[in-house]
Design a protein around this nucleic acid. Structure first.
Lengths: 252, 252
DNA sequence: GACAGCAAAAGTGCATGCAAATCGTGCGCA
DNA sequence: TGCGCACGATTTGCATGCACTTTTGCTGTC
């Protein structure tokens, strides 16, 4: 909720980072599926910036592993393999163990309140495959990472959490998030109690169970127009006002 | 030694990635000290590309944490705080535990040979603060990571290894690398024997001891001309041949 | 001699333009 | 009908240009 002015690591200039954030959200909310094409001009058109900026944003997202860039080819949303997914969760478990170990018993009142508020929000947004609930579940982990005040940990956990979220959109079934919410609450409780071992095993189990729900056929749907998909995400950015693109050709 | 064509993760287009590699080397070999300025035009001039490309490369390096970018300001080589250094090593230890756990007892003959060759190279390049030996020591860990075939692990270990290398250049004393070389050999031996626990504790101890040699005042020297510093790094890139910059003003 | 203020210089932020590569599609040919 | 090929439309790769911001160095004043 706070502007969170800090953590400006990387994420160069204003416009670029705004676009990155918007695309990241679009990706983890599965508005942009893995494999979706991201042509530079369309992005620029949608966000009211030049290709240069869109391109730069794509570069950043590629560095985070959310986007795949191949020379002379249209950028696409990354399509991690199943093995990638397993690897990512392995790494993630280790990183989040670090997070909770560092946090166990050291949460401030304000932080506890923030965590509870977040889980409450998850609760409210419940609804299984609702994109927003998926995002919130992911952001719970990122919120935890932020509380370590370790820029490196923050960056890595955020990155890998987003990536895992992306892979889940490929492999996971509709995602029954209720148990996840309870697990989040349990983690908070254990963190408060300061039981380091308990919280580490909780987190481990939590991530393992999330990862364990893998293995379902990739979703088939496809074909919506990129500009339409991105419209809601672009609107919130208040970069230049979004160009209105009234009748332009754009048939494809 | 092999071209290692794979691992094209992120690292968008050719020229950009070439410049990234060159700068990365320059940074970890301490040719570019933390805080060194990296103006876009100078980079472009040195590598024979436009500012656009240099800028993009800086963006990538910023995403890796090797460069700091502030709006409207000249990019500089990152200057991690001491706390950053500790955090980075914490993360690194966890990541490399994953690496060796995955590798224990599973090395192929070719891989063993490659590792031995690398350590031999370290041995040959010995000489304490010799930049090359520092780089090789770091690259040993990256080489290990590559053998996991896990792109995520490769990327993260590489990144953090470079970052740690950077922080060492700030905080570490001249760096007596001989013991490190022995530790590397010990790790290889334990990996071959497949003693997972042993190799994990070895790696842990190794990194811990490297990290432990921290705490020395930051180095003072400074002031060489960026263009001169980069000359040897630019020459190896065979991008466009390096512009000769004969009499141009460039006083500073 | 030190310092405030100002103006030139240097540098970044971003858009646009042009060349080259790729993708898609219709035509011709078997 | 099926296949190959070539041409046009997209789309990327990269450089350059202009506006704006920061830095630097100078000058005049106290």
């Amino acid at each position: 909720m706070a502007p969170r002015a800090a953590s400006k690591t990387a994420e160069s200039s204003d416009k670029v980072s705004v676009i990155c954030r918007a695309l990241r959200r679009a990706i983890i909310e599965q508005a942009l599926e893995p494999g979706a094409k991201l042509p530079e001009d369309s992005l620029g058109e949608r966000f009211g910036v030049s290709r240069t900026i869109a391109r730069h944003a794509l570069g950043q997202l590629a560095a985070e592993g959310l986007v795949e860039l191949r020379r002379n080819r249209i950028a696409v949303v990354a399509t991690p393999s199943w093995q990638d997914a397993r690897d990512a969760f392995d790494v993630r478990i280790q990183l989040e163990r670090l997070v909770v170990r560092q946090l166990a018993g050291k949460l401030t009142k304000a932080q506890i309140a923030e965590l509870n508020a977040h889980v409450d929000a998850e609760d409210r947004a419940r609804g299984g495959s609702d994109p927003v609930s998926i995002r919130l579940a992911t952001e719970f982990h990122i919120l935890l990472a932020h509380m370590t005040n370790s820029p490196i940990l923050i960056r890595y956990v955020s990155e890998i959490a987003y990536r895992c979220c992306l892979t889940l959109s490929l492999f996971s079934r509709p995602h029954s998030s209720e148990c996840a919410i309870n697990e989040h609450r349990a983690i908070i409780a254990a963190l408060i109690k300061g039981d380091e071992e308990k919280v580490m095993s909780l987190m481990h189990g939590h991530l393992d169970s999330v990862a364990g729900r893998a293995l379902v056929a990739p979703v088939p749907q496809r074909g919506r127009d990129l500009l339409d998909i991105l419209a809601p995400y672009a609107e919130e950015t208040d970069l230049g006002r979004v160009v209105k693109l009234p009748k332009a050709a754009r048939g494809r």
